[in-house]
Design a protein around this nucleic acid. Structure first.
Lengths: 345, 345
DNA sequence: CTGAAAGCGCTTACAG
DNA sequence: CTGAAAGCGCTTACAG
């Protein structure tokens, strides 16, 4: 390529100042219509490319928002991100994505990069063990932060997530209503607020129904499809196998159903299964997966909205918004032990 | 926060010049050890944050690589990106991700953003209909580009993808070997090189075996799990239903199997199914999904490697590298019509 | 081994 | 309505 085209190239070409060119390209009313049109035309003809680094150095606004989650391949996060992306697109913000895989040092490296780039904001689903100080560091260096899916005690920023204890109780109550008395919980760890709250919801709902959960009903750990699959292989061999299982997530539940089938059991008939999140796949899985909707759309929209609001100068909030989950009854739990598969509507 | 800490803050604090501070922080051997250590310590104490915008404006290197694919939630792309991410991480490059959803204007907006940010390179799985001129525009503005998964005639850049025609022929040959004579192909569109090549592989393999594909065997369109599911519902009702189906992707195949089951058919017994890509889920699906491995790891690694090589000054190549696919035989096709499910190893 | 100075390409008061 | 000039925070010859 030839010489780089910059504001002054255009200015020289037309015999005006760079100030005028700058204003014209950003549609300032200070510039006369004729001038603006000539400038825009020339910019196009010369193949001018706006240099955001230079502009951002001057204005200390970068137009960049960072987004960091456990893993974008997990449909739960993927679905949230769709909505975040949509909202940021509308406001012409560039978004930079990173997975942290619950590795604190990876998350820190990313936040550091954002600070170095002068990013305007951060939407974060914090890695396991993130201290409140990490959030304060970001905020203290002019990086407004909004939390999603998980929240942190004392971080002092706003966050959006589902009411996990309530949601898991919905799932358990439903299974009890279907006649189950032995209900396992598969997956999740007590290291995240999500894991703690969902386990608490499961335990509390059982106790409230007068059922004492047996230790072997709690299968801790699985958070992926594959781990759910592996858990089912063990579950199938349990001497006194529970008749139902609530899973930490739909991903775990879908893997769990694959695993049950692999072990020769029919999910929804031999074992009732309920997931969590209501990802898109839940509806087409066969049997279709009963689950608890976890408000991905609302989390994504509102988190992006809250951040953008703050970027336009509105005061910061430090409120954690709990979104009410809703039970979605489907075939994996509803007809358990009563009808064969494929006969439902 | 207080005053922003910059190079000159540190320089003033220690009574040295900003040049020395700059050199010291980047470990230049020009700076004496004592000086360097004092500088680094002070930088840490003051909470100095490197301003990459300013540096990049000066050096015209940004450390940013853009990555743009159809949809990161699609595990095929997700798996490629894992490897790209890993490679870029190792070389301390920031990567910016975007979906284009096969929307050319979204892709263009992203490339434009990269140009404005002075990104160092682009890894692209081009949207349907991307003209070679779009790639040349990027290249012409100092944005080296590497293509993945799909390639573009005449773009003059290097690319990495699977040998789709060969791979699909492997799948069809396998089914013919299992005794099938009526083999549908579900999903994909002739608007992408991938769609064309896989359809050609299917058609050619059938003809070579003396089988004339009937028009209704070609179910064009589906490229998502949900579309695969819907297609199966129609497929199940076909008057003269093929005994086997090769699918455009594993995602389509997995949805297709859900759909068959929903329609009361047993995938792998009533209908043999083969996918394409060999995503992680293929192995745990039940029945496990026969498929064609599509080299996500190799595509991701080599594409990132090729780009980074070029960034370190190596000459550009314009070669398209075809990665040889491998058939993975599993239960969804291998035991069709012979054994009931769940009895296999 | 260290410092003074120019410059990367913008935007923003300020003056006219 | 337009222009001259300063400055955002770095890096890089160049001089010493």
């Amino acid at each position: 390529m030839a010489q780089k085209v910059k504001l002054s190239t255009i200015a020289d070409e037309l015999g005006v100042s760079t100030a005028t060119v700058s204003l014209a390209l950003r549609d300032s009313p200070l510039v006369a219509d004729v001038t603006r049109n000539r400038i825009k035309e020339t910019a196009r003809d010369l193949g001018y490319i706006y240099n955001r680094r230079a502009a951002s150095l001057r204005t200390s606004r970068s137009g960049i928002v960072g987004v960091c989650v456990h893993d974008v391949m997990n449909p739960f996060y993927g679905e949230i991100l769709k909505y975040v992306e949509h909202e940021l697109d509308r406001r012409r913000q560039t978004f930079i994505l990173s997975n942290h895989y619950d590795d604190l040092s990876k998350q820190r490296a990313f936040v550091d990069t954002l600070l170095q780039l002068g990013a305007d904001g951060l939407i974060l689903s914090p890695a396991v063990g993130t201290p409140a100080a990490d959030i304060k560091l970001a905020e203290g260096n002019d990086l407004p932060t909004v939390l999603i899916a998980r929240t942190i005690e004392g971080a002092g920023v706003c966050g959006f997530r589902g009411d996990d204890a309530f949601g898991m109780a919905l799932a358990v109550d439903h299974l009890i209503g279907e006649g189950h008395r032995e209900i396992a919980m598969v997956g999740g760890t007590p290291q995240t607020s999500t894991g703690q709250d969902r386990e608490a919801g499961w335990r509390t709902a059982l106790l409230k129904a007068g059922i004492e959960p047996r230790p072997e009903w709690r299968i801790e750990g699985p958070r992926s499809r594959d781990a759910g699959f592996q858990a089912a292989l063990g579950f199938a061999r349990l001497e006194r196998r529970p008749t139902a299982a609530v899973c930490f997530s739909d991903l775990v539940a879908l893997g769990f159903m694959y695993g049950l089938a692999r072990a020769g059991l029919t999910p929804g008939v031999d074992v009732a299964v309920v997931g969590y999140d209501d990802i898109e796949e839940a509806e087409i899985a066969t049997p279709s997966l009963s689950t608890v909707s976890n408000g991905q759309a609302e989390v994504g929209h509102r988190a992006a909205g809250a951040l953008l609001d703050r970027l336009s100068g509105n005061p910061a909030s430090d409120e954690t918004v709990l979104i009410k989950p809703v039970l979605r009854m489907r075939d994996s739990s509803h007809f358990a032990g009563r009808l064969p598969l494929g006969t439902s509507g």
